[in-house]
Amino acid sequence: MKTATKPPKRSAPATRPANPSTTRKPAAKKPAARAATRLAEPATGHVLLELKALAKELNKAAKGLGKSGAGNPKEVSAILGNVERMTADAATKSLIEAESAKMIVAGTLDTLNKDWNRRDIETALRGVTGHLTNIMVAQEFQDLAGQALRKATKALVGAIIVVEGGGSTDEQRLSQKDVDSLLRELMP
């Protein structure tokens, strides 16, 4: 009778420790096509809440950068990439909210047909529109932050460091006033 021979012991396959840089973070929420359902919400307040949430996320990301990013360019690169994507999503969402609110304001202005205090209502609504415009313009941070993040990523992975887009020191950057003066000299 043959005795069963045990197969030779194999050492357990090495398991890689979880690598934070490869761990997928949950995908950022897509800018929801939910504008239609938010018509009734106070749009300005909602946008400000979104911006506050974004500031919290950025703060968290910055802390994560300090803890785990030091000395590991790949991790830093991933974190920075996530920040860029997150800011893009948040900016898009904010803009959708702002656009929906502006549609409400435009619709309200068009249908006003009561004389009671109409001027005050119209003035207030136009004021809201102006405020919403400022919220939209404030989203420029995403562009500038994105450019800065790309430069940081390039620096961290040892690529050519290109001084571009906001890379100059504050002393070298001209203000809009300086730009206008210089252009008047160059193109009288």
Binding site: D143, L144, Q147, E164, G165, G166, S168, Q172, R173, L174, S175, V179, L182, L183, L186, M187
Partner: peptide, 15 residues
């Protein structure tokens, strides 16, 4: 419309 705001950028764009 750009983040480039150095003097040489303005000159290059004007030229």
């Amino acid at each position: 419309i750009t983040a480039e705001a150095k003097k040489e950028n303005i000159i290059a764009a004007a030229q």
